[in-house]
Amino acid sequence: MTARGTGALMSVTYEIVAGDFVRAGEAASKLKRVLQQLGLDPTIIRRAAIATYEAEMNIVIHSYGGHISVDITCDSIEILCEDSGPGIPDIEKALQEGYSTASEDVREMGFGAGMGLPNIRRSADDFSIESRIGQGTRLQVRILHRAGE
């Protein structure tokens, strides 16, 4: 994790290693602690942790590696997930609940049920995803909050 000094109240970046299922979920856990220390509302923290965890699993499962950068501002949590990898051929399909290209090994770990992107979208106030075949995927999530309330 690295912390940056920007216009945000706080910024953190987590490197995500492809195929590392032991550490998968660490970024979401660490982000959750940061948000708790900032005193944000538990329901907001929960949404941010769920979105980050699902995005992190997607990077571990499907990409060649990437990072998750989070800016916490006075009224929002901005989560940017970028990976290099094969990309998503059909984003519309990937956003459908139940659609998955994950392997049987991944399913045995309780993931790959085609709920990742739908769960991220459900947790977000704003959600956008772009993908380039053979290059990678960029996912942006914004969750609104009011600091200190």
Binding site: F21, A24, G25, E26, A28, S29, K32, R46, I50
Partner: peptide, 17 residues
């Protein structure tokens, strides 16, 4: 209640309290 004993069950539990 689950049949999944992997480390991801613990991570998931931690993420959603």
């Amino acid at each position: 209640l689950t049949g999944l004993t992997s480390i991801q069950a613990i991570r998931t539990a931690q993420v959603v309290d």
